[in-house]
Structure formats: C-alpha cells, structure tokens
C-alpha cells in the first residue's frame, strides 16, 4: 500500500552525493554593494552545506522586496511569490510535503505590514519551517518608504518629516502569539551569529521565526551604524541551549544568560532596551505542529473509489 512515506522513502541517508557551497549558489545577487542581504545569503549557503541538504528537497519561498530575491540566488527549489504572501505558500508546501526542508524569506514590509495576518497565523500553525525576516526598517525595492519597523522620526519618501509612529516590535508580537515555538534575533554584521542562529532555527522542529537586523546602505545606513561600530550597544543572550558563537565572545562583552524555555523572561527581554539583544528569546520543542496534526495517509485510487461508492450509497435513489 502506498503511504505518504513514499515521499520519505526517497531517504537520502544513504545518499553518496555531497554538496559544496558553490553547488547551492544560484544567480549572481543583484543587491546593492554593502547590503546586509549578501552576508545572510552566505550564512544560508553555509548552513545548506553544513547540513548537506539535498538541493532538490530544499525549498525557499519568498514574498516581494529586496530580500525576496533570495531564492533566485540559490540552486534549490524556490518560489518567489507575491508581496506579503510567502508564508501561505510555504505552509501549503510543507502541509503537502513534510519531507521537504522549507524556508520562507521575507522583508519587514512583507512580514509585518502587508503579510501581517499570515505572520500571526503562521506562528500559531507552527508548521516546521525556518522563517527569516530580513529587517532593514524600510521599503528598499520601491525606493524608500516607511515600514512598520522604521524608527519613529526616521524620514522617508512617504513620511519626509520622519516616521509618525512608534515602530512595531516583531519579537514581542511573535512572542505574544499562542503556540509560538521559536523566536530569535540576529544581525547581518556578525555572520557567525547569523549562521549559528539560523542553524538553531533549522534544527528546531516547528515554525522558527528569526528576525535578522539588516543594513540598507541606500536608505537606512544610520539605523545600525552605532551598534556596528560599538559592540557595547549589543547584548548577547547566551545559554547552553541558546545560540553558540564562541568566536564572538571576545568582541561582545555584554552577555546575559537567558534560558530559551523561559517565555516570560523572553517577552520581557524583547521589549525596547538601550542595547540590541541578539539570541534566542524563546524555544519550545513541545508545541504542536499543524502539519503533524493534519497528517493523512495517502490512499490509492481504488481505496478512494471504494470509499466514495460507500458514500454514494447514502444518497442513492
């Protein structure tokens, strides 16, 4: 009998192929020089190589925006979708094919503005995937409009006198959703930490939300400038179950032990603070995953016919 394991049966444990970082590279990125996305792409390629993910069983889904060009720059399966809607597509992929490794790549406008509804619900579904939110605090591709994470007062083409509102806090918002299972933050200017964070996200079974603070040299180069220059403005959340990036210990002296199991503390730490906090705010492997709850055995054509004929009986004349 055919079961859904037929997908899983293409088990690659005995796969003798191996892949280098170059094997995962796709088209040449067209991001601006100095854009933080380059470093994030490199960290992702490193993850793919380290985990030796078969390219054909790896899917990157994205929305629209600078960061959403991501899948084009990789040689895996990819789906460059529409603005704000990476998560529904990615949910459909994983629901249908739990055997695939699914990544969703979004920008801050994508995730927190036009796609905010999907974001909240994707957290609740807790479908196993890595969701990377590349947050540069601005709409870049459409040339400098205020995003939900633009700091108050920061001018843009749509709000030239400065952003009117307090920015939305993506970490607090995610941590506030029931069934959240993995919430982390990292920053593009420390590649080792980016790598370690997305590696932890990948290993987590559930919806892993990673906000990556990302520099935009065009429109928000001031946003993280001070933090880039002054490591004291960064606070690392550390724990044996947290992100492990020992090479950073010497540079970033502000270290705070935070057990990712502690949701209350995670929420507290996610609140605005005079330092940028990086690390895992919360992780819980025990949360229910939607694709598991909804998993169905695949039925043969004949099984379906037999069962449908039974159903017809109820309505027979």
């Amino acid at each position: 009998m055919e079961t859904s394991c037929s997908f899983l049966s293409c088990d690659h444990d005995d796969d003798e192929r191996s892949w280098t970082m170059e094997d995962y590279a796709g088209a040449i990125p067209r991001w601006c020089p100095g854009c933080g996305d380059h470093a994030i792409l490199a960290a992702v390629e490193r993850l793919l190589e380290t985990e030796q993910l078969p390219p054909e069983r790896t899917v990157f889904v994205s929305g629209i925006g600078c960061s959403s060009r991501f899948p084009h720059y990789l040689t895996t399966y990819g789906f460059h979708g529409i603005h704000g809607r990476a998560l529904p597509i990615a949910t459909g992929v994983k629901l249908r094919r739990p055997d695939l490794h699914v990544f969703a790549v979004m920008g801050d406008g994508d995730c927190c503005s036009i796609g905010a509804g999907h974001w909240i619900h994707a957290v609740r579904y807790n479908v196993d995937m890595v969701a990377l939110m590349l947050d540069n605090g601005i709409y870049g591709l459409t040339k400098n409009q205020t995003s939900p994470t633009t700091p108050q007062g920061h001018p843009s083409n749509t709000q030239p006198k400065g952003s009117h509102l307090m920015p939305l806090n993506p970490l607090s918002a995610t941590l506030g959703v029931s069934n959240a299972s993995f919430v982390a933050q990292t920053a593009d200017w420390m590649p080792a930490h980016v790598y370690a964070t997305i590696a932890a996200a990948f290993r987590h079974r559930g919806f892993s939300f990673v906000r990556i603070l990302q520099r935009c040299p065009q429109y928000t180069d001031d946003l993280f400038q001070e933090a880039v220059r002054n490591p004291n403005l960064v606070e690392m959340l550390v724990h044996p179950d947290g992100v492990d990036a020992p090479e950073l210990e010497k540079i970033f002296k502000n270290r705070r032990v935070h057990d990712p199991k502690d949701l209350d503390m995670g929420r507290h730490l996610a609140e605005p603070f005079d330092r940028i906090r990086l690390g895992i705010f919360f992780r819980d492997e025990s949360r229910q995953r939607y694709e598991e709850l909804r998993h169905q055995r695949i039925h043969t054509a004949q099984e379906r016919i037999d069962r449908l004929n039974e159903e017809f009986e109820k309505y027979a004349v």
């Binding site: 899917v59 889904v61 789906f79 979708g81 809607r85 998560l87 529904p88 597509i89 990615a90 949910t91 459909g92 992929v93 994983k94 629901l95 249908r96 094919r97 695939l100 999907h118």
Partner: peptide, 11 residues
C-alpha cells in the same frame, strides 16, 4: 489561495 498554490506546486 496561497496554501492551495503552495500545495499544488509541491504535488
């Protein structure tokens, strides 16, 4: 619609 498209795309 998005979930249906994602699922169709994958199978």
């Amino acid at each position: 619609a998005g979930v249906a498209i994602g699922a169709s795309y994958a199978g």
